[in-house]
Simulated scan of single mutants.
Amino acid sequence: MIAGGSGSFSAGELSVPGHDSPNIATQPVEEGQIEMSATTSGKVVVIDEAHGNGVGEFQLRPLINTLTENGHEVRFYGPDRGPSGEQLNKTLRGADAFVSLAPDNRFKPAEADGVSAFVDAGGRVLAAGEPESGGGGGLLGIGGFGRSGRSAAEFTPVLSQYGLTVGSGYLYDTTDNVNNHANIDAAPTGSSDLTAGVDSVVVHQAAPVTGNNVLLQTDSETELTTTRDADAYGVLARTGNIVALGDSSVLDPDWTYVADNEVLVGNLADYLVTGDRGRMPAPSE
C-alpha cells in the first residue's frame, strides 16, 4: 500500500575540471531482481517529501515496489508541516522507519529532536542523497549533499550524535571506473547484514561518508573533487539505527540493477522493516 505523495527530481550539471566527458551520465545496463529476506509484514515506512527533497516517487520506485510487494506500507510525509515539528513527531509515532533523501529545507530543531527520539525508540532511519554541484552545505548538515545546490544541512544534531558525517564534493576515478570517472566501484569492508551477498556496488557521484562503522568503501585511487586527495572513501556507514548512504542514485531505476546494487537495495529494505520500535516519548512543548 502506498499512501499520498508526489516528488520531483532535477539533475544538475556534473563537472570535474580537466575531466569533462560527453558521457558523464552514462550508466552500464544490467538486469537483476530485488529480493528481501525479512519475514516481517505490516511495517510502516515513511518517506520524507516535506523538505524540498531532490528524490521523488519515480526515483524510489524499486524500493517502494519491493516494500509494498512484501506486505509493508509506504507513506509520504509532507509537504504540509506542523509548527515546531508536531506533524513530523505525529507521523513518526505511527512509523517503523523514516527515509529522507537530499532535503533542501532545514529541519526545525523540534523535528530533529523528534527524529532522535524515533531512533532512540528503535525506529530506523535511512539518509541518502547526492553532493551539491557547487560544494558547501550537506546532507543532514555535514557537507555537500544534494543536486543543483540542495544542501540538506538538517540532521546535524542526529548524525553528529551518532558519529556519522558526510563530506562535501563527490568521488571520482579517472583510471579505474565504470564508463566514466564519476561511476566507481565500492566494496564491502567486512561482514554486515547490509552488505550480505554484495561483492561490488557502483555509485555515481557519491559523497564520502565517515563513521565508526563504514560498510562500503572505494579503492585507494579514488579522488574527491573538493580536495583532489586520493584515498579509500566510505560511501555507506551505519551507527545503530541510522544508515547514511553517499549516493541516492543507487535507489534509482537507472542504477538499481548495475553490479550488485539490487542486492544492496534489498538489504536496505530488510533493514527498514526489521527494527523493533518501542514507545516514543511525547514531544516536549
Score class of each variant (00 low, 15 high):
G4P: 08
G4S: 12
G5N: 08
F9N: 08
G12T: 00
L14H: 00
I24S: 02
A25N: 07
T26N: 06
E35R: 10
M36K: 00
M36I: 15
S37Y: 07
T40L: 10
D48H: 09
G52T: 06
V55E: 02
F58H: 06
Q59S: 14
Q59H: 07
L60P: 07
P62R: 01
L63R: 04
I64W: 01
T68D: 07
P79L: 09
D80Q: 13
D80G: 11
P83G: 05
K90T: 15
T91G: 11
L92W: 07
R93M: 15
F98G: 01
A102N: 11
D104G: 02
D104M: 09
N105G: 11
F107T: 02
P109M: 14
P109Y: 13
E111D: 02
E111H: 06
A112T: 04
S116Y: 08
A117H: 08
G122W: 01
E130M: 13
G141I: 02
G144R: 05
G149M: 01
A153I: 04
S160C: 00
Q161R: 08
G169C: 09
Y170K: 00
L171P: 00
Y172D: 03
T174C: 05
T175L: 10
N177A: 04
N179H: 06
I184P: 00
D185N: 13
S191V: 15
D193V: 10
G197L: 14
S200C: 14
Q205G: 06
N212H: 10
N213G: 09
V214G: 04
T218M: 11
E221K: 02
A237V: 15
A237N: 12
A237S: 15
T239P: 09
I242D: 02
A244D: 03
S248G: 11
S248W: 06
L251K: 08
D254P: 00
T256V: 07
T256W: 02
A259W: 03
L264R: 01
L264P: 02
L264D: 04
V265Q: 03
V265M: 08
N267D: 08
L268F: 01
A269Y: 05
V273K: 01
G275W: 01
P283H: 08
S284C: 11
E285A: 15
